[in-house]
């Protein structure tokens, strides 16, 4: 299984499932990362974390620890 964390910069992936629960999961989903949506990994912050992705036409920053719970496929 591949997570958003493992996705390299410049790649576009599709969300398969969101793991975890509670506030963080809800927040991530509220921001539009839901099953089936396409995510483009745009860049990594200069210090290596967090990452910036494009989802539903806007820019979102997600910590790698949180990106780990987003299961994706190419």
């Amino acid at each position: 299984m591949k997570s958003l964390r493992d996705t390299v910069i410049g790649e576009t992936v599709k969300v398969v499932k969101l793991h975890g629960e509670g506030a963080i999961k809800r927040r991530i989903m509220d921001m539009g990362i839901t099953k089936g949506v396409e995510i483009y990994v745009r860049k990594v912050a200069p210090l290596g974390d967090p990452i910036e992705v494009t989802v539903r036409g806007y820019e979102l920053s997600v910590r790698k620890a949180d990106a780990e719970m987003i299961e994706v496929c190419n």
Binding site: G22, A23, I24, R27, I28, M31, P50, E52, Y58, E59, L60, S61, V62, R63, D66
Partner: peptide, 9 residues
């Protein structure tokens, strides 16, 4: 836990 999911406007 503190989620850090932030829009970059």
């Amino acid at each position: 836990p503190a989620p850090f999911v932030m829009e970059l406007p």
